[in-house]
Design a protein around this nucleic acid. Structure first.
Length: 574
RNA sequence: GCACCCGUAGCUCAGCUGGAUAGAGCGCUGCCCUCCGAAGGCAGAGGUCGCGCGUUCGAAUCGCGCCGGGUGCACCA
């Protein structure tokens, strides 16, 4: 149930009625008619722009349309009053029983409230994290992990068939570097001093891998040349790293449905098939790229290469798929991977990348557009930097020394719930400050706490209600403006979910929950001043039951919202 | 030089397929516990929505051009 779309249906029906009676010309499109919560509560519960958007095509004055429409809307039992305001807004006030009904409805629906079937029959693939299997996940990956996982949950909530997928870059030069780094740790385990050359991965996390190699191979690899051990060590170390990464993901509650190996694209004809598909579309040719203007690399030389005409699908320039020596570029397996996704029958692809990969967006979109004939939309979401603060000062990370803050560090210090919520307190494309001290704080400055506290307060009330043998009733008794405001906020939940899912913006859930908690805390405190507004009415179980329905409904929605975010709702916070 | 992202209150940021007098938190000022959890709440001050054109009944939102900040820019993955 979405109260806003319900009322919009009422508006559209009324407009149809006007058409039937000749008050409006036939053939009007009502697509642009909206029913929304007004920014200013003084404008009522809902506002519609119907009269304004229809005035021109209908050749009528907005206010004339509005007044006719208003009279029709007022005939509906749900509508208490309608006023025509400003240039032709319709400001609706709904009957008090509608808001009481919202509470009842929320309680009846429980965790189902706000779910929708807008995504029914839609297969969506969300690819995220996809970090190189060369070490543990760090904070930047954490943001992408939380964002992707939450978006996936949100899309499930709206009925989509969602696949969470991780693309494993297990075929490039970086896994050779991993293998060499692990080999040094292996030598170390065998009693030799390791030589961690410049360019190798220095992190301690490879020490146990070295030990494991020794356990497996004994000292058999020591005398061999690199050519003889590289493949085996690479395979082993990559497996170990993926195990590490899976554990990291599990630590913040992320479970992938599928890990797609880049290596699996080689050897068969996967890449060849993908390139052929492009070729069949006339998008592959041999050519020489122009040097970039204004920034000429020192070693520029014209080279004839196999190129993908990505510029035909929105990219700025064409992109090489083969190097001048005939081997594939890194881009070629990316093409094959997205081709694979397209052929797996998804209706929508979503890639979540770090902002430093912004330069690849157009070419990948070009690939999907070309290979799906424009049928499969690809949305690429970039997640901006996470800036760490500790004791009020920026926390420096140095990749070169292997001294970076890992996902594990963060989760160990502040917990998965807090980490997840905080990662969504900014829009994905805005930089995020992550302050270890602020985030651990239990005060209203900390949005996670603020929302959790609201939920815990409801649970506290319910515990007391049980002690006082207050029966639970789904019928709410709302009288005060603060109570109606809260019910109104609850009614926005399904609409908010719909928008967040459509825009692929899970942060909206976090912001909504913060607002909802704010309305709840306001009402709670009003009970200090006006005892009649307290949820528990002394020695009056029936009155208490009617008052408790509203906070119970709040808890239902907070719980559902936090569920999408992957955060546990706290029942007490002592 | 080109592309993408960002520019909203002193600070950090929201802002709904374009809607009315642009919001929140922090900070600042002043208040509220014989009272369900004050780990909370209420009120006040504070803004040329970077700038300029344009589209529109209506622009923070859409288009174009500037200015400022970030990121990325040939066979490296």
């Amino acid at each position: 149930m979405n109260l806003f779309s319900d009322i919009r249906v009422l508006v559209i029906d009324s407009l149809d009625g006007m058409v039937a009676e000749g008050a409006l010309p036939a053939g009007l499109k009502f697509d642009n008619v909206t029913v929304e919560p007004p920014r200013d509560a003084a404008h009522g519960d809902m506002a519609s722009n119907a009269a304004m958007v229809l005035a021109k095509p209908a050749g009528l004055k907005p206010r004339d349309i509005a007044e006719n429409l208003a009279a029709r809307l007022e005939a509906d039992a749900r509508v208490a009053s309608v006023e025509v305001a400003g240039p032709g807004f319709l400001n609706l006030r709904l009957a008090q029983d509608v808001w009481r009904g919202v509470v009842t409805h929320v309680l009846a629906e429980g965790a189902e409230f706000g779910k929708s079937n807008t995504g029914a029959g839609h297969k969506v693939n969300v690819e995220f994290v996809s970090a190189n299997p060369t070490g543990p996940l760090h904070v930047g990956h954490t943001r992408g992990a939380v964002f992707g996982d939450t978006l996936a949950s949100l899309l499930s909530f709206t009925g989509h068939d969602v696949t969470r997928e991780y693309y494993v870059n297990d075929a490039g030069a970086q896994v050779d570097v991993l293998a060499r780094s692990a080999y040094e740790r292996y030598r170390e385990a065998c009693g030799h001093a390791p030589e961690i050359a410049e360019g190798l991965y220095p992190g301690d996390y490879l020490v146990p891998v070295g030990q494991a190699l020794k356990d497996k191979f004994g000292e058999a690899l020591l005398d061999k040349g690199e050519a003889d051990w590289l493949a085996e060590v690479r395979e082993f170390a990559t497996q170990e790293m993926m195990a590490l990464i899976r554990d990291d993901l599990a630590a913040i509650g992320v479970t992938m449905d599928r890990f797609f190996s880049e290596k699996s694209l080689y050897g068969g004809d996967k890449i060849e098939a993908a390139i052929k598909a492009l070729d069949d579309a006339g998008l592959i040719y041999e050519g020489v790229l122009e040097p970039p203007k204004g920034k000429l690399p020192d070693d520029w030389e014209p080279r004839e290469q196999t190129l993908f005409r990505s510029s035909a699908h929105g990219d700025d320039v064409d992109r090489p798929v083969k190097k001048s020596d005939g081997s594939w570029t890194y881009f070629a397996p990316d093409i094959a991977y997205h081709y694979d996704k397209v052929t797996r029958g998804y209706d929508q692809l979503i890639d979540i990348l770090g902002a430093d990969h912004g330069g690849y967006v157009k070419r990948i979109k070009a690939v999907v557009s070309a290979l799906s004939d424009g049928r499969v939309p690809l949305d690429i979401k970039l997640t901006q930097l996470v800036r760490l603060y500790k004791d009020g000062a920026p926390f420096k990370m140095s990749k070169r020394s292997g001294n970076f803050v890992t996902l594990r560090d963060v989760v160990d210090q502040v917990g998965a719930d807090v980490t997840r919520f905080v990662m969504l307190t900014r829009k994905n494309d805005a930089p995020l400050d992550f302050d270890f001290d602020k985030v651990a704080e239990q005060s209203k400055d900390n949005p996670v706490f603020y929302v959790q506290y609201a939920h815990a307060r409801v649970c506290s009330v319910l515990r007391r209600a049980e002690e006082a043998s207050v029966p639970l009733s789904d019928s709410a008794n709302l009288v005060d403006p603060a109570e109606f405001a809260l019910a109104r906020k609850l009614a926005e939940w399904p609409r908010l979910v719909e928008i967040a899912a459509r825009e692929h913006e899970p942060h909206r859930i976090a912001f909504y929950l913060y607002d909802l908690a704010g309305e709840f805390h306001a009402l709670w405190n009003k009970g200090n001043e006006f005892p009649a507004l307290r949820f528990l009415q002394d020695d009056d179980p029936a009155a208490s039951a009617a008052k408790i329905a509203l906070p119970r409904a709040v808890a239902v929605v907070i719980s559902a919202g936090l569920g999408i975010l992957g955060v546990t709702p706290a029942t007490e916070m002592r």
